[in-house]
Amino acid sequence: MIYKKRTLPSELKALISLDKRLPNNHDKKHNVKKNLLICQASYNGKLEFDEHINEFRPDYPHAILHDLYLQQDGAYFQIDSLVITPSSITIVEVKNHIDKTVIKANPTQFIRVFQNGERKAMRNPYIEIDRKIHLLKNWLGKRGIQIPIDGILTFAHTNELAIEHPSPEMKTMFTYEVPVHFRSLPVNEQILDGHAIYNLANALLEHHKEYNTFPIANLYGINPADIRPGVICPICDRLGMQWGREKWNCLSCGHTGKTEHRQTVEDWFMLVQPKMTNREFRYFTQLNNRNVARGLLAKSGLQLIGERKAAHYILMKEGKSPTPVE
């Protein structure tokens, strides 16, 4: 059962919005675009993994959770995918490299070999997986759960993978091999029954906390004044929708709608700052009427804090659904 589906990462959503709103001649545009492509490629690789793991449908109780953020011992750690069976838990790390990857031993080194022959050392994923195993063991131990935890490293692209000395502790494979790997795992000891797996999956969901670095303009050293305001048309992707006759109107393609400002509000929180006043809403949507702005803000799923001059809006915290899905 899949208890947590993968959704578009917060960083990727923010980079998409920032790329749209940052002028092409901005000195940070190249860096934003570069990181956007890297983040998009990483997400695509994880989606490919998700397609393959869907083939894993054993007849025993199990749980699969994608993209978990947990905190333990004062540290945050992210798990690409977690597979819980009655006798073990597996942390899956997914990489999406289109270049050749060489894995050396003694000491362990990961080297990316680009098509032009350039070689570049990359961070050792085994170390990161070991860190996550350690933190997850402590997280479970504080809840009285003792169960073996393994880790596997997967590559989404079927590019050339040269492993000089395979690691006996950490399995490395392509994502299409993952279903076969999990089907081959023996379930010798039932440490967790179906009820315990259900409770554990829901406890993980309850403690999952989406990690973000908002507002992202600060992260890139971008002056908020450089971020272009305006409502973006969801059809033609152009800035400059105008409010008139109780709806937003795109002068470029003719699209109209009543809720197009909501993405603009989300962009503000992701890019600029974690609160918004009526005046800031009017500036960022390029809307002149204060009363219209108040009405639109009231229907935007925001929480109003304070009164009069101190009034501002913040995002409401979203609840999590504990229901497993097929």
Rank of each mutant, 00 (worst) to 15 (best):
H207Q: 13
H208S: 13
K209G: 12
K209D: 08
K209A: 13
E210C: 07
Y211W: 04
Y211M: 07
Y211E: 12
F214Y: 15
P215V: 10
A217Q: 03
A217D: 10
A217R: 14
N218R: 14
L219W: 10
L219N: 07
L219D: 11
Y220S: 08
I222Q: 09
P224W: 01
A225N: 15
A225H: 15
G230Q: 13
V231S: 10
I232A: 06
I232G: 06
D237Q: 15
D237F: 12
R238H: 11
L239R: 11
G240S: 12
Q242V: 10
Q242M: 09
Q242S: 07
W243R: 13
K247P: 01
C250E: 06
L251Y: 11
L251E: 11
S252N: 13
G254S: 02
H255Q: 13
H255E: 13
G257M: 02
K258V: 15
T259P: 02
T259M: 10
E260G: 04
R262G: 00
T264F: 07
T264H: 08
E266T: 12
D267R: 06
D267Q: 04
W268E: 03
F269C: 05
F269P: 03
L271W: 04
V272N: 13
V272S: 01
K275G: 02
M276I: 08
M276D: 03
T277C: 13
N278V: 04
E280R: 03
E280Q: 15
F284T: 07
F284D: 07
T285S: 04
T285V: 04
Q286I: 03
L287C: 00
L287W: 03
N289T: 00
N289Q: 02
R290Q: 06
N291T: 00
N291F: 05
V292E: 03
A293S: 12
A293K: 00
A293P: 11
G295M: 00
G295C: 02
A298H: 05
S300C: 05
S300L: 01
G301C: 02
G301M: 06
L302V: 09
Q303K: 11
Q303H: 01
I305V: 12
G306A: 09
K309L: 06
K309E: 06
A310I: 09
A311L: 11
A311R: 13
H312R: 14
Y313V: 01
Y313D: 01
I314T: 15
L315I: 08
M316D: 09
K317I: 04
G319P: 08
S321K: 13
P322D: 09
T323P: 05
V325D: 10
V325T: 14
V325M: 14
